[in-house]
Simulated assay, not measured.
Amino acid sequence: MKRNQGLGRILVMVYAVFALSAFARSLFQILTDFSSAPLAYLLSAFAAAVYIVATFSLARSGRTAWHVSLVAVLIELVGVLGVGLWTVLDPGLFAEETVWGHFGAGYGYVPAVLPVIGLAWLLTHRPAPTR
């Protein structure tokens, strides 16, 4: 079964929802209230960009798409763990929530679980070796 079929298609849809929601939220926040929490809003915009890349690369087949997906999901994992820890250790720095803040608490912790599922899916659906 191809990586982007079956459960893979559901994974792509979840990433698409997060890409859209993170993008819309960060765009609105940046356009309407950027000065109140620039770091938080820029981090949310970065998360949106990562989700967009992951969505498109997960939806495609092939070795290059698999590698791009792997990098995007790894960046997502590092981001959610790093920003999550940062918001716990220095909450005063974040005047507003971010997508990855507090390990994705504002999104039901799905941002913390999604890259783990994405990595598991990618590692069990590696492309065939080239000859």
Rank of each mutant, 00 (worst) to 15 (best):
S44V: 10
A95S: 14
A19L: 03
G101Y: 01
L58K: 12
F46Q: 15
G108T: 09
V83I: 13
Y51W: 04
S26Y: 07
R9A: 11
T87A: 10
A72Y: 11
G92A: 12
A59Y: 08
L11S: 00
A54C: 05
M13D: 05
G108W: 03
D90P: 01
S26F: 11
A16L: 12
W86K: 02
S44G: 13
S44W: 07
D33R: 15
L11M: 04
F28P: 09
G84A: 04
V68K: 05
Y51S: 05
N4R: 02
L31V: 15
G82P: 06
L81I: 14
A48P: 00
G79A: 05
Y15Q: 12
V99K: 01
V14A: 08
L11P: 00
A95K: 15
A48D: 06
Y41A: 02
F46I: 11
A95H: 15
A22F: 14
G62S: 11
W66V: 11
S35D: 15
F46S: 13
L89V: 13
F103H: 04
A54H: 09
A19P: 01
G106W: 00
F103N: 06
A16T: 15
Y107P: 10
A49S: 13
I75C: 10
A40V: 05
T64Y: 13
A105F: 08
A65Y: 11
V12L: 09
I52H: 08
G104V: 06
A47H: 02
G106D: 03
L42F: 03
L7H: 05
L74A: 14
N4H: 07
V12N: 08
V88H: 13
Y15W: 13
A54R: 10
F94G: 12
A19I: 02
S61W: 00
M13E: 04
I75V: 13
